[in-house]
C-alpha cells in the first residue's frame, strides 16, 4: 500500500510529468482512502493556478 509520503510526491510530479498507469492506479487507491492527501492534491493544483495568476494580479496591487 502506498504511503502518504510517496503519494504526495506523485501528486506533485503529476504536474511535471505524465504518471505511469501503475502510478496512477496506486495513487488513485491511496487518494480514495486518505482525506489529507486528497486535500494535498487539490492544493498542489491551487498552487499552480495561484502562480499563474501571480504576475497578473500585480496589476491590481496599487490601484
Amino acid at each position: 500500500m502506498m504511503k502518504c509520503k510517496q503519494a504526495t510526491q506523485l501528486l506533485s510530479e503529476k504536474l511535471d510529468r505524465p504518471l505511469s498507469a501503475k502510478e496512477k492506479i496506486h495513487l488513485a487507491m491511496h487518494i480514495s482512502m486518505c482525506g489529507p492527501c486528497r486535500q494535498f492534491g487539490k492544493q498542489m493544483e491551487m498552487i499552480r493556478d495561484l502562480s499563474k495568476s501571480y504576475s497578473k494580479t500585480k496589476e491590481s496591487d496599487d490601484q
Partner: peptide, 17 residues
C-alpha cells in the same frame, strides 16, 4: 511532516483551504 511509517504527522495533515 511525515511519520517514520510514511503517513502524515497528525498536526501536519493538510486542511481544507
Amino acid at each position: 511532516l511525515f511519520e517514520a511509517n510514511g503517513h502524515w504527522q497528525k498536526d501536519e495533515r493538510p486542511k481544507k483551504w
